Simulated scan of single mutants.
Amino acid sequence: MPRIPPLEPPYPADIQAQFDRIMRGAPPLMLFRVMAGHQRAWGKFGGGSLLDRGPLSLRDREIAIDRTCALNGCEYEWGVHVSTFAAAAELTAEQIRATVLEDSQAACWSEAERALLLAVDALHRRATLGVAEFATLRVHYNEDQILEIILLCGFYRTVSYLANALDLPLEETAARFPARTSCGA
Results as ranks from 00 to 15, higher is better:
residue 32 F to L: 13
residue 66 D to W: 08
residue 47 G to P: 12
residue 8 E to L: 14
residue 26 A to G: 04
residue 29 L to D: 03
residue 42 W to I: 05
residue 25 G to I: 09
residue 73 G to P: 08
residue 8 E to K: 13
residue 69 C to K: 05
residue 26 A to M: 12
residue 75 E to I: 04
residue 33 R to H: 02
residue 52 D to I: 07
residue 22 I to P: 04
residue 84 T to F: 10
residue 41 A to M: 15
residue 41 A to W: 15
residue 77 E to N: 01
residue 72 N to E: 08
residue 86 A to F: 12
residue 35 M to N: 00
residue 31 L to M: 14
residue 35 M to T: 04
residue 26 A to V: 03
residue 12 P to W: 02
residue 52 D to V: 11
residue 66 D to P: 01
residue 53 R to Q: 15
residue 17 A to Q: 12
residue 21 R to I: 07
residue 48 G to W: 05
residue 58 L to S: 10
residue 72 N to Q: 12
residue 61 R to E: 05
residue 12 P to L: 08
residue 56 L to Q: 07
residue 24 R to C: 00
residue 72 N to K: 13
residue 88 A to E: 14
residue 14 D to H: 10
residue 82 V to N: 04
residue 67 R to A: 06
residue 86 A to G: 10
residue 58 L to N: 02
residue 63 I to P: 02
residue 11 Y to M: 01
residue 19 F to T: 03
residue 11 Y to P: 01
residue 22 I to V: 14
residue 67 R to C: 05
residue 65 I to N: 01
residue 47 G to D: 13
residue 25 G to S: 10
residue 29 L to P: 02
residue 59 R to Y: 11
residue 31 L to T: 03
residue 49 S to H: 11
residue 68 T to M: 06
residue 73 G to A: 10
residue 67 R to G: 00
residue 25 G to L: 10
residue 59 R to D: 12
residue 69 C to H: 02
residue 79 G to W: 13
residue 73 G to T: 07
residue 74 C to V: 05
residue 15 I to V: 15
residue 11 Y to Q: 02
residue 38 H to S: 00
residue 51 L to R: 11
residue 26 A to Y: 12
residue 63 I to L: 14
residue 79 G to V: 09
residue 87 A to D: 12
residue 22 I to D: 01
residue 32 F to A: 03
residue 6 P to R: 05
residue 53 R to S: 14
residue 27 P to M: 09
residue 14 D to S: 09
residue 84 T to Y: 06
residue 61 R to F: 03
residue 67 R to Y: 03
residue 88 A to F: 03
residue 40 R to S: 05
residue 29 L to H: 12
residue 58 L to F: 01
residue 62 E to K: 01
residue 32 F to W: 04
residue 42 W to F: 15
residue 69 C to T: 14
residue 62 E to S: 03
residue 6 P to V: 08
residue 48 G to A: 12
residue 59 R to T: 11
residue 35 M to I: 00
residue 10 P to A: 02
residue 82 V to K: 05
residue 31 L to G: 04
residue 89 A to I: 08
residue 31 L to S: 05
residue 19 F to S: 04
residue 7 L to Y: 10
residue 81 H to Y: 05
residue 30 M to I: 15
residue 63 I to A: 00
residue 70 A to L: 08
residue 14 D to L: 00
residue 59 R to E: 09
residue 57 S to T: 15
residue 48 G to I: 09
residue 60 D to M: 13
residue 82 V to Q: 14
residue 89 A to Y: 11
residue 47 G to R: 10
residue 61 R to A: 00
residue 20 D to E: 11
residue 10 P to W: 06
